[in-house]
C-alpha cells in the first residue's frame, strides 16, 4: 500500500529534499508552503499522514494541527527547528504522533514515519516473511517447513512488538510493558520463557538463533535479514 504524505514546510529547498526522500521510499507526496495551501491540499486529496513544520508564514503548525484534526483523524508528525521542551511537549500534548527536530537524517525520518504509519494503519490480515518462516498476523500463526504453529497471545504481542521495531533493539522493559500491565519488576525470567518458545516457532535452530537475537543486558532485536 502506498501512503500519501502531505509535507507542510515554508522552506522550498527542504521540502524538495523531504519529497525526494519520501518518493524514493515509495510514498506519494503532496506539498504546501503555508497553512492556507495545506488546508487546500488537505481538502483536495486527504493525505494518510502529515509532516508539519511549526513556524509557517501565515500561522503556526500547532493551530493548523487542530484544524486538520477537526476534519480527519490521521497521523501527524511535527518536523521543526524548534527544539525546546515546551514546543515538543506542546506538540505531543496536542496529540501529535511524533515530534522530529531538525536537523534529521533521511533514515531517521523514514523510520519514524514508518513506525507511526505501521501503528496507525496496522494491516491485521497481512502476512510477513521472516527468513523461511511466514507470519500470518490475521490468523496468529507461523508457518515454517510446511508446518503451522499457532502463537499464544503473549507470543503474538511479543513478535508484534519486535516486528514493529525490526532491526532495532527493544529493551526487556519495553517488551515486558507490551506483555503485562503494572509494575514490571520480576518479569524478566517469564519473558525469557516466552522468547524461547517463540524461537522454537520461528527459528530453524532455536539454540543458535538467526532472527530473534539477544542483546546482552539490554533486550532483544529482530534481525529480519537473518544471521548473527
Amino acid at each position: 500500500m502506498s501512503f500519501r504524505i502531505l509535507i507542510v514546510d515554508d522552506e522550498p529547498a527542504l521540502q524538495s529534499m523531504v519529497r525526494e526522500i519520501l518518493t524514493q521510499a515509495g510514498y506519494e507526496t503532496l506539498s504546501a508552503l503555508s497553512c492556507a495551501q495545506a488546508l487546500e491540499q488537505f481538502r483536495a486529496a486527504p493525505p494518510d499522514a502529515v509532516l508539519l513544520d511549526v513556524m509557517l508564514p501565515d500561522g503556526d503548525g500547532f493551530s493548523l494541527f487542530g484544524k486538520l484534526r477537526e476534519n480527519r483523524d490521521m497521523p501527524v508528525l511535527f518536523l521543526s527547528a524548534r527544539d525546546e521542551d515546551a514546543d515538543r511537549l506542546q506538540g505531543l500534548g496536542l496529540g501529535a504522533d511524533d515530534y522530529i527536530t531538525k536537523p534529521f537524517l533521511p533514515q531517521e525520518l523514514l523510520l519514524r514515519l514508518r513506525a507511526v504509519l505501521r501503528r496507525v494503519y496496522r494491516e491485521e490480515g497481512s502476512a510477513s516473511k521472516l527468513g523461511d518462516a511466514e507470519i500470518d498476523w490475521g490468523k496468529g500463526t507461523v508457518r515454517r517447513d510446511g508446518r503451522e504453529a499457532a502463537l499464544t497471545a503473549k507470543e503474538y504481542a511479543l513478535l508484534r512488538k519486535l516486528w514493529d521495531a525490526r532491526g532495532n533493539i527493544v529493551t526487556i522493559d519495553a517488551l515486558c510493558a507490551a506483555l503485562w500491565d503494572g509494575p514490571l519488576v520480576g518479569y524478566e525470567n517469564t519473558l525469557m520463557v516466552h522468547i524461547r518458545r517463540l524461537r522454537e516457532k520461528i527459528e530453524a535452530e532455536p539454540s543458535h538463533p538467526s532472527y530473534l537475537l539477544t542483546v546482552r543486558g539490554l533486550g532483544y532485536r529482530l534481525n529480519v535479514e537473518g544471521g548473527t
Binding site: L14, E84, T101, P103, P106
Partner: peptide, 21 residues
C-alpha cells in the same frame, strides 16, 4: 543563540539529508 541554532537547523538538515542520500 536560540535564534542562531534555529536558523542553522534547516540548512543542516539539507546537508545531512543530501550527504546521506
Amino acid at each position: 543563540i536560540n535564534g542562531v541554532s534555529h536558523d542553522i537547523r534547516t540548512p543542516l538538515s539539507m546537508v545531512m539529508g543530501y550527504a546521506a542520500q
